[in-house]
Nucleic acid binder design. Structure first.
Length: 906
RNA sequence: GGGGGAUUAGCUCAGUUGGUUAGAGCGCUUGCAUGACACGCAAGAGGUCGUUGGUUCGAAUCCAAUAUCUCCCA
């Protein structure tokens, strides 16, 4: 046994234990095939990403769950991995190329992908090292990346299967186009932001009635060159006479028809809508219904092209808006420019205005939508907190086909080949397979890659080897799927959670049109989804690089230790509420660890360590006849804590569990039990040490999922486990289990001891308070007198040493009557300080009167309650008894005060 | 426009089916080197639980309005 240093030094301990854990392979699921399994798949971070506070929260929770499962003896598997983050990574690589004056096209596809791989391999994987610093106990040997060979095949297989099953199709559609990344985006990747824009009101001349005009309102005058109609609502009386006629589009000047379409809102603007089928989704639909021509005037970069006329060609869309408005004004066609608030789509990654653009893309009609709803509605998959179910169901109820193709080179290239120089609309000329055609020289592959989310929606089973039979065997998919818990943020409920559910239901069983509840149960990817809050700064802003308001978790670890960071963040993470992060909580976590360290250090310093190898070994060191109320109480509180923490963790109430542990350890164990144990007589010491050892043992076990490093360190320092075994191999167990173990060793806990201890504690607190009031706080030689009934007197006598030591008293003497002395009414009688002559009688009277007033209020409200017949008839007995007890106590106290006041003669 | 969430001490937040005197940490005030811990110990100040109604013997808690903030969807 080594002596414990004065302050806990996390750094050395953390690196030591992490490498020992890795060496031993203890993060891998054991081989006991009878054991229950438990599994989690990590939400794959971006391969080139670095650890954020969000990751800290999310992965600490996963680590708590997996470590707890391991302690419970389950075969626990936490699969780590990363995704390739198509747009983000490609953008970074292209940026690097630009510094060399190159574009990806200069390199060509093959070279570019090579370069991107290189870039990923040098910059990637940092996050794994960071997660290790945090203590994450992932099965690193099982690390998966979405572009790994096996995983890649799984992604392509998914595409091919869904294509065969009729869920995937290619079509010319209006999509969300990102002019910065030059790719289509899914609806989910578009962020709507409120913008201060303008509503331009302009007029087009009626061709058939020169001099007559139709007024049109638009927020986008820069697209008017692509207008191919003006539309009004068929019910709109104002315009009925114009439908079927034409008006003049001012530039390039051309006649366009005035049509009627129900999609036009009568009340918006002027009720007349300019129709630009190439640049607006709603207009596109109108165009299809009325067979309108489609004129593209904005190119893929957001620049106007030659169709817009020579005045506009080559101009950026933002500038074109101003120029178009000016031109309208010059032509006398602009009637008004009004301020207008609207919501405009921005691309999630590049944060630029998304341009609706007509293009050929691949779409997925989602499979198993109804079953996915049922899985959650029927609580086969449970959401924590439950309210996210609404968001999930709402999305599924309004689900739109998913645009899965991206115009990128970094990702999974779509496994579709077209016969060279042949009609692509003829199915004969399309080949879809994972391997590709056998005569590749006659085919050309689709240029696009798949959305990154298309690779991560199969994460729960593709990480376990699917669809390769052999790999599924070695990875034990049949044992670890469905996974147990998923921990993620609600911001990716659509991107990821719902899609994983659909993918699981579609693929984790034979192809089937509709599923039974049993099928759903067997196929669903996880049983519980815990949604974390979003970490914000103290002003409530999201943490972001650009704001610079996000602390680097590694700095925090260096400053406070990984355990401090983990405990701190868990203590402020309320269930499903956003978190305002403040470094103070990490300091508190660090302080907690240091307190734990010192409690153990104190135990080690106060007496020889003995056999701590098991609960029974420790219990055998206890002698029931040396048990006092404090021993009973602390062990009783320990059992309560065991059950409370188990219950809280079963309900994912992490911050509550930290609170429970904190209160028990700091409040009950350190502040009281350890302190009173200092006064124990020599023959009581051995038993008291055993009690301390037992409490510390169970505490370390309960704390281990939260603070793995320090608990492992102390576990070994105090000799709880053999050298070659880890704390993860022991379970904190339950209250019942502990009581039984104690019983068999001849210890039966007395629950009523807790009441006595509460009285003693309150009594001590009162004595300290009255000392402090008279500035005697630091003095230990105060003589107290007290009046008490026989029962209280007996209790005081039994605990005299304890009371004296804790309150800082030289003596406690029972007496009949004391006059003109400061007094305090405690649950064990009225205590007087003997300094009669020095007392400021007036001040003492004021103090007592103040207390009396407060008591009077309490007495009155209790009396009123008890006199109320409805209350006594209807309230539960316990509540009535409680009020009665409170009333009696307060009455006694107030009588005591009145007596004290009477004792002041002046 | 639709939906979710929040509103409790100076700050950040607990408060689990309504029930005994509404709690914690930080901060603040005062005192303290006490058989481990100043990353500590002790004592204390500080709250009309956003507002208004309602249900109830009883409301921070349930219901309805309302205000403010926030998120998501359209």
């Amino acid at each position: 046994m080594t002596a414990i240093p004065k302050a806990y030094e996390p750094a050395a301990s953390e690196s030591k234990w992490y490498s020992r854990w890795l060496e031993s392979g203890c993060f891998l699921p054991g081989s006991d095939s009878n054991a229950e399994t438990y599994s989690i798949v990590i939400p794959p971070p971006n391969v080139t990403g670095v650890l954020t506070m969000g990751h800290v929260l999310n992965n600490t929770i996963q680590d708590i769950l997996i470590r707890r499962a391991r302690q419970a003896g389950k075969r626990a598997l936490w699969i780590p991995g990363t995704d390739h983050a198509g747009i983000a990574t490609q953008t970074k690589v292209e940026k690097e190329l630009r510094q060399e004056g190159l574009t990806r096209h200069d390199l060509g596809r093959e070279k570019f992908v090579e370069k991107a791989c290189e870039w990923r391999d040098t910059h990637g994987g940092i996050i794994f090292e960071q997660l290790k610093r945090l203590g994450a106990s992932c099965a690193w040997e099982r690390n998966v990346h979405t572009l790994d060979e096996g995983y890649k095949n799984a992604v392509l297989h998914t595409f091919v299967e869904l294509y065969k099953r009729g869920y995937i199709y290619r079509g010319l559609r209006m999509v969300n186009w990102c002019p910065a990344s030059l790719t289509a985006l899914s609806d989910e990747e578009v962020i709507m932001k409120p913008c201060k824009s303008h509503l331009y009101k302009m007029r087009y001349e009626i061709a058939e009635e020169p001099g007559q005009y139709i007024e049109i309102a638009t927020t986008r005058p820069e697209t008017l060159m692509g207008d191919t109609a003006v539309a009004v609502n068929p019910e709109d009386e104002r315009y009925k006479h114009l439908v079927g006629k034409h008006c003049w589009r001012p530039f390039p000047r051309a006649q366009i028809p005035i049509i009627a379409d129900a999609a036009v809102e009568k009340d918006f603007g002027t009720g007349a809508l300019k129709v630009t089928p190439a640049h607006d989704p709603a207009d596109f639909e109108i165009g299809k219904r009325h067979d309108l021509p489609t004129i593209e005037v904005i190119d893929e970069h957001g620049i106007l092209n030659e169709n817009a006329g020579e005045d506009f060609a080559g101009m950026d869309r933002a500038k074109a808006r101003k120029v178009a408005a000016k031109k309208l004004e010059e032509l006398g066609l602009l009637i008004a420019t009004e301020d207008h608030d609207n919501n405009v789509g921005f691309s999630e990654r590049a944060d630029v205005l998304v341009e609706p653009r007509l293009s050929e893309q691949w779409f997925l009609r989602y499979p198993k939508v109804e079953e996915s709803k049922d899985a959650v509605k029927e609580a086969m998959i449970r959401f924590w907190p439950k309210r996210w179910e609404k968001t999930y169901l709402h999305w599924l109820n309004n689900i739109q086909d998913w645009c899965i193709s991206r115009q990128l080179w970094w990702g999974h290239r779509i496994p579709v080949w077209y016969r060279k120089d042949a009609d692509r609309n003829d199915p004969q000329n399309i080949h879809v397979s994972v391997e590709g055609p056998t005569d590749p020289e006659n085919w050309e592959q689709d240029e696009d890659v798949l959305d990154t989310w298309f690779s991560s929606w199969i994460w729960p089973f593709a990480t376990m080897g699917w669809p390769n039979e052999e790999a599924m065997q070695t990875h034990e998919l049949s044992k670890f799927y469905p996974t147990s818990d998923l921990v993620t943020g609600p911001d990716i409920i659509f991107f990821w959670v719902s899609r994983m559910i659909m993918a699981g239901l579609e693929f984790m069983g034979p192809e089937k049109e509709t599923l039974t509840p049993e099928d759903i149960q067997a196929r669903m990817p996880f049983k519980n989804v815990y949604f974390t809050g979003i970490i914000r700064d103290i002003q409530g802003r999201k943490m972001s690089k650009s704001l610079g308001n996000s602390p680097d978790p590694l700095d925090l670890i260096a400053k406070y230790g990984a355990d401090g960071l983990r405990f701190g963040i868990m203590s402020i993470a309320p269930q499903g509420q956003d978190i305002l992060f403040n470094e103070d909580c990490v300091a508190q976590g660090r302080n907690f660890c240091n307190k734990l360290w010192n409690a153990c250090r104190f135990r080690q310093m106060s007496g020889e360590m003995a056999d701590n190898s098991s609960i029974e070994a420790i219990a055998k060191r206890m002698d029931a006849k040396f048990f006092d109320e404090d021993d009973h109480a602390i062990l009783g509180q320990l059992t309560q804590t065991l059950d409370a923490v188990n219950k809280q963790l079963n309900e994912y109430a992490f911050s509550m569990a930290t609170q429970t542990l904190y209160n028990f350890f700091w409040g009950d164990f350190c502040d009281w039990y350890l302190e009173v144990s200092k006064t124990k007589s020599p023959e009581h010491k051995a038993t008291s040490f055993a009690v301390q050892d037992l409490v510390i043992r169970q505490l370390l076990l309960m704390l281990h999922p939260f603070t793995p490093f320090i608990t492992e360190e102390l576990w070994h320092l105090l000799g709880y486990g053999p050298e070659d075994s880890f704390i993860q191999n022991a379970s904190p167990g339950t209250a019942e289990g502990l009581s039984t173990a104690l019983n068999t060793c001849g210890i039966t806990l007395k629950p009523e001891a807790l009441t006595t201890v509460e009285k003693l504690r309150e009594c001590v607190s009162k004595l300290r308070a009255i000392k402090a009031q008279y500035n005697l706080g630091a003095k230990k030689d105060i003589n107290f007198f007290y009046t008490a009934d026989e029962a209280d007197h007996a209790c005081i006598s039994a605990h005299t040493e304890k009371l004296k030591s804790m309150a800082g008293a030289a003596s406690l003497t029972r007496t009949d009557d004391v006059k003109e002395a400061p007094a305090s009414i405690t649950p064990l009688g009225t205590f007087y300080i003997d300094l009669a002559s020095a007392v400021d009688i007036e001040a003492e009277k004021t103090r007592l009167n103040k207390e009396l007033e407060k008591l009077k209020g309490l007495i009155l409200s209790a009396q009123k309650k008890l006199e109320n017949k409805s209350f006594t008839d209807k309230a539960p007995e316990q509540v009535i008894a409680g009020v009665q007890k409170q009333l009696d106590e307060n009455k006694a106290k107030s009588e005591e005060i009145i007596k004290l006041l009477g004792s002041f003669t002046s």
